[in-house]
Each structure stands twice: as C-alpha cells, then as structure tokens.
Design a protein around this nucleic acid. Structure first.
Lengths: 255, 255
DNA sequence: ACATGGGGTTGATCTGCGTCAATGCGGAAA
DNA sequence: TTTCCGCATTGACGCAGATCAACCCCATGT
C-alpha cells in the first residue's frame, strides 16, 4: 500500500554485527563503483573517510519510491544496483519523467535547495542505494578539502547534464532526441563495464516519451524506423545498437 | 527610453579611489542585492568574510560575452546589474538559449564540473558582475560552515530550476510555456523590488523562442493572442501583465 | 495449458506549430 | 528630418508528431 522501508541489513541484524568482515561492510573503499561514484578522484585515505559516513544501505523494490516530492531532505543516495527514474506529478495527473539513474550516480541533490525533495525517485527494478546523510557529508567535506571540491564537481555535473537535456528538448526533433537518448544510455552502460551495443531498457515507451517530450506511439514508431534502417535492433525492451555512427550522424546534421 | 543603469558610484570615479570609504568598496555587506545573492542567510560577520574574496568587478557591454563555452573556469560571477543569457552554439550554427539571468543571480556553476565553461554568458544589456574566484570561495566555505552550506543550496537551486525548465519543455504547449515564462520573469522582478506587472524584456522574440523551444513567430503570435484576450499588454519589448490569474489558469489545467 | 492484462506496434486522421513570405515599426545614425 | 536595419507582426500553407483506435505480443498467475 505505502512504500514501507525494507529493514536495513546492516543495523537490523544484531547477529552479524560482531563479524564485521571488511568486504561485507558497506564501504566505498571496496566498492566496485568507486570510480564512478562520489569517491572518484579521491585518494585511498580520503575514500576511507567516506566509509565513515556511508554506513547504511536501503533496498527499494521495483515500483516503490526512494523518496517523494515534498519529503523532508536528509540524505543523498548513491545507487549501488538497480535503476531509477526521477519524476514529478503534474497538475493534470500525468507524471513527467525528469531523468533516469543508474549505479554509481547520486540522487537527491535537488533536495538541498529547500530541505525538501523536489521530485520522486522511483525504482524501475529492485534496487539498492547507499544512504549518505547530508549533514555528515558536509561535515566530512569540511574536513577533507578534496572531498568538498569533488562534491562541487558532482553537483556541477548534474547542472551540465540538465542543460544538455534542455538543449535536447529545446532544439531537437523526435528522431534526434531518441538517437541522443540511446547514445547517452549506451555510453553510461559502457562506463559501468556493460556492453555499449546491447542492453535492456528498464523503462517503458511511455516513460521514455515523457522524458523526451514525445508520446509513446512516436517513440515506438521511431524505434521501428531505426530498426528498418538497420541502425538498431529492437525486441521489446532489448536494444542492440548496430550502427553507432548512423545514430551519431542524426545528431550532427542540425535540422 | 531604455533602462539605463544608474552610473556606478564606486568604480567609475577614479578621483575617489584613494579615499576607500568602506561603503564605496565592492563589498557584499553593503550590497543591496545581499538578500538575493550569495550572502543570503549569512550573519553580518560571515558576510564580511565574503567581502574578502569578492574583490573585483567586471563590466560587460551589451552583446559581449562574460565567458564562452570552453573557456577555462576560474570564477563564478554574481550579477550586480544588467541582464544575461546563457547560450550554446549548436552543430548547425544556431544558438540555443539555456537561461536568462538577472541581478543577484550566480553564473558559471556549470564550469566547476570539468574546469571549463559549458556555455556562453552573453550580456543582453550593459552589465556589471562581481567576480568570485572559485578557489577562494572554496577556501572560504572551508572556513565558514554556513557559507559552505549556503553555497550547496545555491547549486541545488540551480538544479531545481533546470528541472523546472525540463518539465516546461517536456510537457507544456506553446501558450503554457509562454505563460510560465512571463510569470517566472514577473516573480523574479518582484523579488528584486521591481513591478510584478510591468517590465521590459531584454531579449528578442527569437531568444525567448530558443529558450522555450518555439519559433519567434509563434512567440509573437501568442503574445498577440494573450493581448487580444486581455491577459497582457504588449508593446514591443514592454510587457504589462493585466491578469496574473488568467496566465496562471493556463498552467493549472494540464493539457 | 489457458486466461488475463499491461505494454508495444501500427494505421488513419487531425492539428499545433513550423516554414515561408510580405509588411510594419521604431530606434540609431547621418 | 530622413534613411536604414534589425526586430516584430501577420497571413497562408505544410508537416511532424499528437490523437484515436485496433490489434498483437508476452509475461504472469491459476
């Protein structure tokens, strides 16, 4: 009915707490995502400072919300596994998707502004996040200059990313938007060690459309068109990119 | 005729430079914009810390760039007077406007990400900015916790603002976009002490259109339509909002 | 195996906005 | 003042993408 908090693994099982094997702890220093996530660019000892503050994880089931618009803001979240969308409920009841997020990415930055989240974060598949209490992060970045600097970069990167989406929505045609979307996904999968050419979409056509400012029928039609042209292979949510250059060519020739 | 900036008392008169009366220096603590700008929410003594680092101003003539995409990033800029647009040059030569900026707002946050600016900042009228060397800002916010926290809020606010634009571009029709645009401008003018109902647009129809993902003819037509409906008065760049509620009503009823 | 339902595809038609083109206006310079 | 030029307005027409509608596919539960 409501999104009940799954019991926290670290703190809910006192039986485990004596064992404390390093690899099993939620620590950044041993996390395979450390090159993508908050720790990027930090030294080993600095990452160990992060370990101090990222002490909780949270599991979110597919369809449930990590947070909702209006919720009090207390923490940032680093995605450890799974897939999320950011979305807001519009006046007319539709929900507008404002972003998709994958492992290693930080969610919740919008909440800092007024201490309340500005959008929902909904899991598109069963997911797990690292909870980063924001007050502690500020404390830590007060101690560690490079962490402060890096955190600024993370926020700035988010601003640049959003401006990229604004450009996409403001100046591109449907086909270009979808090409840009696929290339962007591909690139993000690559830097996570997955295939650049083959992946599963975690979101529906409607969610893609909402994000790109298109209707689901248009998204579907363009997928089919790309397929006929040999640019991609589509089978439901499974995508195979056949000609990256073909997709990129769509972007270069303005309109 | 046009909104001429009152000549700046502080820096324009070299005869004064030896005197160095505190009130005449470029200091945040005596700046009329301090309630809108970086100093917001800081105590008097904390603001005085800011005075240390904001020691330069820069004048930008109408049409000139404060910075360009690709320029090395070194400083943030607080607008002291004037009006700017952010814009990027697209592959096809058009330039896409990604934002408009007025006094008290901070520009350049996009540059932190990769130490280069991601867009141009072009003055739409003769303008003046306070230069905030970023390294010094980080240094200062390392010292002053509340400054650090506030700076995070400034960045987060920018993220929220961008997401608002994404929603506008992703889900609104032309009339709704323009209504939202006018209401947004009006609100920002109000908080700067100007009339909410009457203002001069500093940008052309084409720039508005670029920002809103519309063509200039569409912008023009909708201005005319709004005028016929009695919602606003338009005379070239002069706008008078006659029925705020009428404009707001356009937004509430989804589509 | 079968039924069910949510997502996806595809076609026909409609329309909001883009495009192209002509005209008007007002501020800057001579 | 007159000329000029960039910007704005307005109209006629076309098209990309929305809308409406039918059908299909596949995953899920019984």
């Amino acid at each position: 009915m409501h999104d009940s908090q799954p019991p926290d693994l670290m703190t809910a099982q006192p039986a485990l707490k004596a064992i404390d094997i390093p690899q099993l702890k939620t620590v950044c220093s041993s996390c395979s995502l450390r090159e993508l996530c908050l720790p990027i660019g930090l030294s080993q000892s600095e990452i160990e400072q992060l370990d101090q503050l990222v002490y909780t994880r949270r599991r979110i089931k597919r369809g449930e919300n990590l947070y909702r618009a209006g919720d009090e803001f207390a923490s940032l979240y680093a995605i450890r596994s799974g897939f999320f969308k950011s979305n807001v409920l519009l006046a007319d009841g539709r929900d507008q998707v404002t972003g998709f997020h994958m492992p290693g990415e930080i969610m919740g930055l919008d909440g800092i502004s007024i201490d309340r989240h500005a959008c929902n974060a909904t899991a598109l598949e069963d997911s797990e996040v690292c909870v980063i209490p924001f007050a502690r992060l500020e404390e830590a970045s007060h101690q560690v200059r490079s962490l402060q600097h890096h955190f600024h970069k993370v926020m700035s990167r988010e601003i640049v990313r959003d401006q990229g989406v604004m450009m996409l929505l403001g100046s591109m045609h449907a086909e270009e938007r979808l090409a840009a979307f696929l290339l962007n996904l591909s690139q993000r999968f690559v830097s996570r060690g997955y295939s650049p050419a083959e992946f599963h979409l975690r979101m529906t056509r409607e969610e893609i459309g909402s994000f790109l400012g298109l209707k689901l029928e248009t998204v579907s039609r363009i997928f089919s068109k790309f397929q006929h042209e040999g640019l991609i292979g589509v089978q439901q949510k499974h995508i195979r990119i056949r000609r990256v250059d073909g997709l990129r060519a769509l972007l270069d020739r303005g309109d």
